[in-house]
Write a protein that binds this DNA or RNA. Structure first.
Lengths: 232, 232
DNA sequence: ACGGCGATTTGCGTAGGCTCAAATCCAGGG
DNA sequence: CCCTGGATTTGAGCCTACGCAAATCGCCGT
């Protein structure tokens, strides 16, 4: 990818919003390109945080392992999302493992580069605060869901969130364009894969979704999912 | 409170760590003092975010209301903690309601003042990112707890976190020095007040805690609580 | 095309924690 | 000092969602 291609990518990244063109050029110039094959990890929980990243294309899952070996899916990240950057700025190890759910390209900046950039362009720091604030709000939302809603409603809400973050219009409905096991969805929803499986099966019976094993999840009747997500 | 008193408060505030003395002076000079009586709210969820705050002394509870009227306690904030600031920087309404659980003093800066300060002292933005990062991590931790642990363990973990955030050594054990109803604890732990009550009663029976109605919670045998919080 | 194996589905039993309900307690006001 | 209302405790029953287990599916590599 040449610099001008990178710049056109960076223009759509919220972290770099509002920066002058020359800044984007400099930022693009110092970026490393990291290609990550499906199921590979650009970094793992506990590794020293050496680089801040932005997703160029592809899809990344952020996993957090519990002390006792359990796993929680924190989030899926798509093009334009920033990851690992806060850990670098805080000087702590990565708090989660990143896993590519499809072949992806990350742009990365080393810790010293990142410091230079943040010093040179104070707007970067403000953008970063806004982004982290958004993530914080999203987590509060999820905590609230897990605390107050029953499983079926949570799964519906989670699917709708995934759609918002990276859904695509398909022939028959809205598609979630990356593969995600029942286990992943369970860890994202705070339940078990069994319950997820049962729930999706029921919805498939009712024609709300199409969730054949191999293919990606397709939401055939979004309004019914919304109804489930909002029911008292 | 005069300026020098304010400065001595601000010196211990993480948001202002590493700033030169003259900066603290200027920051202290532009601060508003907001006194909040017990059970009063300096701001409410949905209000336009006009001011960023720092707790001078006292204790603030952050509540978030669900669309359907339920309530979740996001966090307790003590001296030195920053609140409402991210909402100001993001230009969105306050996402939660702040309630003083005891008489408190907040220092506040209006949105324009805050912008000036962040522009004048870039270190502020980096500090803010670190703080928000810490909050993010804490929320991830809680999400993980709610997702994977049973109620008793969560309550133990929550009490221990409260101790870490503001515990005091007392005669008989470690004390949580502010009042907190069973309902509050339930909303903090993602359970019902009934279950909290039963659990605390059981622990009182076993001599792990002392939780008389009127007095504050005292942890008599922290190690046993730790054991519960860590049990498989 | 075939075989192996992880992913998914589904059944069955149950326990943890919620709901509903009632008794009891106690802080604060008059 | 007594009264009152909200907070807390405690009981009983039930239901959701989990745990365990077995069957089935279908992707992937050979």
């Amino acid at each position: 990818m040449d610099t001008s291609a990178r710049i056109s990518v960076l223009q759509r990244v919220p972290l770099f919003a509002g920066l002058p063109a020359e800044a984007l050029g400099r930022i693009a110039g110092t970026a490393l390109e990291v290609r990550v094959a499906k199921n590979d990890s650009p970094f793992r929980q506990g590794d020293p945080a050496t680089h801040g990243h932005v997703v160029g294309w592809g899809r990344i899952r952020l996993d957090q392992a519990t002390a006792d070996g359990q796993n929680v899916v924190l989030r899926y990240m798509g093009p334009g999302d920033m990851l690992g950057t806060v850990a670098v700025l805080r000087g702590i190890p990565y708090p989660a493992t990143a896993v590519a759910v499809e072949d992806s390209l990350l742009l990365a900046w080393s810790a010293p580069r990142l410091s230079e950039l943040f010093n040179a362009y104070p707007a970067l720091a403000l953008n970063a605060i806004r982004l982290v604030g958004t993530r914080l709000e999203e987590l509060q939302q999820r905590l609230q869901e897990v605390a107050t809603q029953r499983v079926e409603r949570r799964i519906a809400g989670t699917l709708l969130r995934l759609v918002r973050q990276g859904g695509r219009r398909g022939e028959q409905g809205i598609e979630i364009p990356f593969s995600m096991s029942r286990q992943d969805l369970a860890e994202l929803t705070a339940t078990t894969l069994h319950t997820v499986s049962r729930t999706l099966s029921a919805w498939e019976q009712q024609g709300i979704i199409s969730a054949r094993r191999s293919s990606h999840l397709v939401i055939l009747q979004p309004h019914r999912l919304v109804a489930i997500a909002e029911e008292a």
